[in-house]
Design a protein around this nucleic acid. Structure first.
Length: 345
DNA sequence: TCTGGGGTCCTAGGACCC
DNA sequence: TCTGGGGTCCTAGGACCC
């Protein structure tokens, strides 16, 4: 008797795997990918590191200069988003050939909805097809909903299959810390711990009204739902409509000259305008982000009088918003973000 | 370890209006 | 008149995720 399952397909070491596919000599070596690939460049971090590099204490998010210190023999490669995008599309195309529903969740992940009486067999077929057609390895999690399937794929790594459902949720998850849940990070986990809620089981047993008082009417009760193993179970196959778009730059060295800062904001706004035109979207709000040295981030935003994609109008708006900052400290990052008008609203 | 870039969603507070 | 309450819009910031 077949029923609905949610599978989470997670490509293993995706970025590194794509790089190794292009250059097989990298296989088995410590490889670090990030930025322009120059480990001497300050303020650049690793997007990913292979297991061989991780053995030296290198991990994603680590500054490249630190990675170089820890693993001088590592191969440093520049990040190449178009290559990852192309590889990702090949994988998603393989998944779509099955009689399933596919919801793409970033470059290296997808949720798959399927009616089957043997989800493990389907998972194995997906893995084999992806490997045969793209030479990429993936892990597959099986669940009643996206939350369970997502956690399950992490337990399946590398290249495995794992089932996490209401049947084994408590047994597998109850004693884990709250940040094991998908949607609870270090900050919330710490605040929960301060309330005496350290484990998933403790959070599941907490009073929803109490949680609402501490974390808001939506978030508080939602954290408890996560701890109970609940989650979204609908696989949406229609393409995602982006809410907005942004461009930002961290400068290798701080900016102090006002004219130079204004010039960079103008350029970022023009890039965002080109992106909006390319995506065929109208802009309704413009935000400017300034990160001051050493690491203080501030944003200012402004709703436009009317939707537009005009580069001149967007840069003028961004520069006007920039004028509301006190630029009395060195600047390490500038960003321009826009919100799009949404169809049917 | 001196901390990227690109997203999404939620919350809180003030303005404004009735 | 010195003062209520609700609804909505806008802004700034925080948290999370890949």
């Amino acid at each position: 008797m077949s029923r609905e399952w949610i599978l989470h397909v997670d490509l293993d070491q995706f970025i590194a795997a794509v790089e190794i596919l292009r250059n097989p000599e990298l296989r088995g070596k410590p490889v670090v990918v990030g930025g322009s690939g120059d480990p001497a460049q300050p303020r650049t971090v690793a997007a990913t590191a292979t297991y061989e590099a991780r053995e030296h204490g290198v991990h994603s998010g680590m500054p490249l200069r630190t990675a170089l210190r820890r693993c001088p023999e590592a191969v440093f490669l520049p990040s190449d988003p178009p290559a990852y995008e192309a590889a990702s599309e090949r994988v998603m195309a393989v998944l779509r050939e099955f009689p399933v529903r596919v919801e793409v969740w970033g470059w290296d992940e997808a949720f798959v909805g399927a009616a089957t009486d043997d989800p493990e067999a389907l998972a194995a077929e997906l893995q084999q097809a992806v490997r045969a057609r793209t030479e990429l390895s993936c892990s597959v999690g099986i669940g009643d909903n996206k939350h369970q399937a997502k956690l399950a794929s992490a337990f399946a790594k590398p290249a495995g299959i794992y089932r996490l459902t209401g049947d084994n949720w408590a047994e597998v998850m109850n004693d884990r810390p709250t940040d094991a849940l998908w949607g609870i990070g270090a900050r919330i986990s710490k605040r929960l711990a301060a309330l005496g809620l350290h484990t998933v089981a403790q959070l599941a047993a907490a009073d929803p009204a109490d949680l609402a008082g501490h974390f808001g009417p939506t978030n508080g009760p939602w954290y408890r739902y996560l701890a109970l193993g609940k989650g979204e179970a609908e696989v949406v196959t229609t393409p995602w409509v982006a809410r907005g778009h942004s461009r930002e730059t961290t400068f290798p060295h701080d900016l102090t000259d006002r004219a130079e800062i204004t010039r960079h904001v103008t350029e970022l706004a023009e890039r965002v305008a080109r992106d909006a035109v390319a995506e065929g979207r109208q802009v309704i709000r413009v935000s400017v982000k300034v990160r001051f040295a050493p690491f203080l981030t501030r944003t200012r935003q402004s709703k436009l009088p009317a939707p537009t994609t005009d580069a001149g109008a967007l840069s003028a708006a961004a520069v006007s918003v920039l004028g509301r900052f006190d630029l009395d400290r060195p600047v390490r990052l500038l960003g321009v973000a826009v919100d799009y008008t949404m169809p049917d609203t």
